[in-house]
Design a protein around this nucleic acid. Structure first.
Length: 259
DNA sequence: ATGGCTGAGCTACTCAGA
């Protein structure tokens, strides 16, 4: 089973790259973040490629979606807390099979600037609420894949010059503590099993020739519960997608499970 | 020390991104 995650930065601008990804990888599940469209504006391509669509869209900003192959029977997970209703940043499904597989797709708030309290405190509250929900799922013994754009630098080597990011919402200790809290409820960060710190990034800014200088950030992750961690065969970062015509600033990443 | 790019909404810019 292949599960892919991609902050696509507008699904309408990136429709042809999404088709390319589906044609070459044919993932069972695709998590998309920053689709930047309303539900009825999502391109219809997923139909022909045999996917069902679960979508939390919004006009022009944020927005997440899951494409899941039609062969899977599933139920949407409800995230009805106030903080998750404010912006379209989370969606999830449970797959009806013997694994009781729960899939949660997230796009965490950026949170900058930290001085203008509102944005940053929203980020921290949002991550706290995510932590609460994930703990609940873990405690009920489900098999969980939590993936997407966390907008947190977990490790000092997830950017070349971490010191310059400590006063940024991505590198701030409060954000990083929240990330750890989520992780320490019993999830494994898959990238850490296959890559040394500093070896791989998932995002390169459009500015400052970041791609050309390989000045990237690792902020997109796959976190999985214990049983699933033992079933992971590989993780792959589709780096060439950052060098393509009209790229997203994030690349697709995917995991392969022995399921 | 700062900005540099991109997308959406909308039609001249601002907001948001990270």
């Amino acid at each position: 089973m292949i599960v892919c995650s991609w902050n696509i930065n507008s699904v309408r601008m990136r429709e042809s790259l999404l088709i390319e990804l589906i044609n070459s990888l044919n993932p069972d599940v695709i998590f998309l973040q920053e689709i930047k469209c309303q539900n009825n504006e999502f391109p219809q391509i997923y139909q022909k490629k045999n996917y069902n669509l679960i979508i939390k869209g919004e006009k022009g900003k944020y927005g997440v979606a899951i494409l899941v192959k039609k062969k899977f029977e599933f139920q949407e997970i409800n995230f009805d807390s106030n903080i998750f209703q404010r912006e379209a940043r989370v969606c999830g499904i449970k797959i009806k099979n013997d694994l009781n597989l729960h899939l949660v797709n997230i796009y965490a708030p950026n949170g900058n600037p930290i001085e203008s309290k509102e944005k940053f405190s929203f980020k921290i509250k949002w991550l706290s609420e995510l932590n609460r929900i994930i703990k609940k799922l873990i405690n009920s013994q489900v098999n969980l894949i939590l993936a997407g754009d966390f907008n947190v630098l977990e490790h000092h080597d997830d950017v070349q010059d971490f010191d310059n990011w400590q006063k940024d919402a991505l590198g701030h200790i409060s954000s990083r503590k929240k990330f750890r809290e989520i992780l320490f409820s019993g999830l494994t960060n898959i990238v850490r099993l296959f890559y040394k710190p500093g070896e791989i990034y998932s995002y390169w800014d459009y500015q400052k020739a970041s791609w050309e200088r390989n000045y990237g950030l690792l902020i997109d992750h796959f976190l999985v519960s214990p049983k699933l961690a033992c079933l992971i065969e590989s993780i792959f970062f589709e780096k060439e997608y950052r060098g393509k015509e009209k790229p997203s600033d994030h690349i697709p990443l995917w995991i392969k499970l022995k399921v």
